[in-house]
Computed example of a mutant assay.
Amino acid sequence: MIVCHCTQISDHEIKAAIDWMRASDPQTIITPGKIYHALGKRADCGGCMPLFLDTMRGCDNLGVPPILRGLRTRKEEAVHEGRRKGHRISQRSAAV
């Protein structure tokens, strides 16, 4: 199936590019731009992007590499620049 009519990219080419990128570097983050680059093409109008992304998501090799999983922290664990809890003026005046 043709996914991008402007550059004539098919779903098979997208899947092959993802497989090739994953085989060459298992820890790479795969983006649409990298796929276009791997195929030697450039995005034109962007109308294909929803279908392009759906095709990417349907690939088994697209997942986040294990070494990069869990890098995001939960809000409770986030460090706020080392500031005290009542660092805002509005919070100080309310506490006084």
Results as ranks from 00 to 15, higher is better:
residue 68 L to I: 02
residue 13 E to W: 01
residue 96 V to M: 08
residue 25 D to M: 00
residue 63 G to Q: 10
residue 73 T to L: 14
residue 19 D to A: 15
residue 68 L to Q: 12
residue 45 C to E: 10
residue 25 D to P: 00
residue 20 W to Q: 13
residue 51 L to S: 13
residue 42 R to N: 07
residue 67 I to M: 09
residue 51 L to Q: 04
residue 52 F to W: 08
residue 5 H to F: 08
residue 21 M to T: 04
residue 64 V to I: 12
residue 14 I to G: 00
residue 76 E to K: 03
residue 61 N to G: 11
residue 52 F to E: 00
residue 50 P to N: 11
residue 27 Q to Y: 07
residue 48 C to G: 05
residue 43 A to G: 09
residue 35 I to C: 02
residue 30 I to E: 01
residue 11 D to W: 01
residue 67 I to D: 15
residue 95 A to G: 11
residue 75 K to H: 14
residue 77 E to R: 07
residue 11 D to Y: 00
residue 92 R to H: 06
residue 16 A to D: 14
residue 52 F to Q: 00
residue 40 G to L: 01
residue 22 R to W: 07
residue 77 E to A: 03
residue 46 G to V: 04
residue 63 G to M: 11
residue 87 H to R: 03
residue 73 T to F: 08
residue 70 G to R: 09
residue 41 K to T: 08
residue 26 P to S: 12
residue 38 A to K: 09
residue 23 A to S: 08
residue 5 H to W: 04
residue 73 T to P: 12
residue 28 T to Q: 12
residue 61 N to I: 06
residue 17 A to N: 07
residue 86 G to D: 13
residue 40 G to A: 01
residue 52 F to S: 01
residue 66 P to K: 03
residue 47 G to I: 01
residue 17 A to G: 10
residue 54 D to G: 15
residue 62 L to I: 12
residue 16 A to Y: 04
residue 70 G to T: 02
residue 17 A to C: 07
residue 83 R to I: 05
residue 82 G to W: 06
residue 2 I to R: 04
residue 1 M to K: 08
residue 81 E to K: 02
residue 93 S to Y: 09
residue 22 R to L: 07
residue 69 R to W: 10
residue 88 R to P: 00
residue 31 T to S: 03
residue 18 I to T: 06
residue 16 A to R: 05
residue 11 D to H: 05
residue 69 R to C: 12
residue 88 R to K: 10
residue 60 D to F: 08
residue 55 T to M: 02
residue 78 A to C: 15
residue 51 L to K: 06
residue 28 T to M: 14
residue 37 H to L: 09
residue 94 A to P: 06
residue 45 C to S: 10
residue 57 R to L: 13
residue 57 R to F: 07
residue 17 A to Y: 04
residue 58 G to L: 03
residue 7 T to Q: 12
residue 21 M to E: 11
residue 23 A to C: 06
residue 86 G to S: 15
residue 41 K to I: 03
residue 86 G to N: 15
